[in-house]
């Protein structure tokens, strides 16, 4: 049923009409979304979309190329600062500043890719982690970038279009997210993507087959950093204010967790993972206002724990969800999806 008879079947973007239909339906849903929900959820969607962009980029690196990065908050920061500084100090228009900043991030990605040629596993993790920590220190040191006191973002306009509400920004973000997601999927189906996958599966074997390791490993880092840079530039406009302390190690760890929970080597998984974890990140603080459960937790705190620390329950729940997903489904959400699909395909057997 799934047999491929022709090379083009392997590289085509949409494998069947059904997928085209659902993709179209999804786009329509995204376009109508702001009209049916409260403005707050548009903000949440924006936040999710930004994480989706980073995570897709990071998945290209972690899931497809088999490298690891605990320093993506660094690229994210470069994108954010680059965009804001180019716009407010050099008065670049947004549509130029954003890709320019992302290219700077990509350049840093390329540089970080160089040590990655020799490192793997925990060694690479520490190297990238060091990068993430250092870059915010350096940014904080430079007064031109606002130092530790941070920077305010300028007004956002694209040509005649003035984006000042969440809904305006939502359309910009969603367009970019869809484009970047499709681009990532496309990239995977090309020669470059296959080279990435070959490196992931066995880098030495890939090299003997003629894959240029130097080029493709650094390219993977650069592409991944580019995605993070774009996302960072957009994030600055969600917050309208940036300072170095926002881009913490915790953020990098969260990005990595999103990739893995979503499912390594799957764009759909990345989207799902980023959405799930960022939603939890924003919404778990409301856990105490769930009827009954909240009261019960309060009583529990009163007698065994402390009321002042009660909000920390959200961390426990978050941690539990991470652990449970990974325990029962090592492939992440993508794995759950595959299993459900298989189940229905073979139903009732």
């Amino acid at each position: 049923m799934d047999m491929k008879r022709h090379y083009y079947e392997d590289v085509q973007l949409f494998t069947s009409g059904v997928i085209v239909f659902w993709f179209g339906a999804f786009i329509v849903f995204l376009a109508l979304f702001p009209f049916v929900v409260k403005n707050y959820y548009v903000y949440v969607a924006n936040y999710m979309a930004i994480n989706v962009i980073v995570v897709i980029g990071l998945n290209l690196l972690v899931g497809y190329t088999g490298q690891i990065s605990l320093g993506h908050a660094g690229f994210f920061a470069i994108g954010a600062y680059g965009t804001v500084v180019l716009m407010s100090k050099a008065s670049f228009p947004f549509i130029v500043a954003l890709p320019a900043a992302a290219l700077v991030a990509a350049l840093f990605g390329f540089l970080l890719g160089l040590p990655a040629l020799r490192l793997e596993g925990p060694y690479l993790a520490i190297a990238t982690l060091g990068f993430g920590l250092t870059i915010t220190q350096i940014i904080g040191r430079i007064e031109f970038f606002g130092g530790r006191q941070g920077l305010h973002t300028p007004e956002l306009t694209i040509g005649p279009w003035h984006l000042d509400t969440d809904i305006d920004f939502y359309y910009l973000l969603i367009t970019l997210t869809v484009l970047l997601a499709v681009a990532a999927r496309n990239l995977i189906k090309t020669r470059v993507g296959r080279a990435f996958i070959a490196i992931r599966d066995a880098d030495i074997a890939a090299e003997t087959m003629g894959v240029n390791l130097v080029m493709y490993k650094t390219l993977a880092f650069a592409v991944s950093a580019f995605y993070a840079g774009i996302a960072g530039g957009l994030y600055a406009f969600v917050l309208r204010f940036i300072e170095p302390e926002i881009f913490t190690l915790l953020m990098s760890i969260m990005f990595l967790a999103m990739v893995i929970v979503g499912g390594l080597g799957s764009i759909m998984g990345s989207i799902a993972g980023a959405c799930l974890l960022s939603w939890m990140d924003l919404q778990l603080r409301n856990i105490l206002s769930i009827p009954y459960v909240g009261l019960w937790l309060e009583a529990l705190s009163q007698s065994y724990f402390s009321i002042t620390g009660i909000s920390n329950i959200q961390y426990i729940v978050f941690g539990l969800i991470l652990v449970l997903i990974m325990l029962f489904e090592p492939l992440g959400i993508f794995g759950i999806w595959i299993r459900t699909k298989k189940y229905w395909k073979t139903w009732p057997f």
Binding site: S306, I316, F318, G319, L322, V323, L327
Partner: peptide, 22 residues
């Protein structure tokens, strides 16, 4: 990588427990 995420999860649970209690 899956195991790393599990250890991150455990980290959050333990940190949450300590901050909740103390």
């Amino acid at each position: 990588l899956g195991l790393i995420v599990i250890t991150i999860g455990i980290e959050m649970i333990l940190l949450g427990l300590v901050s909740w209690k103390f």
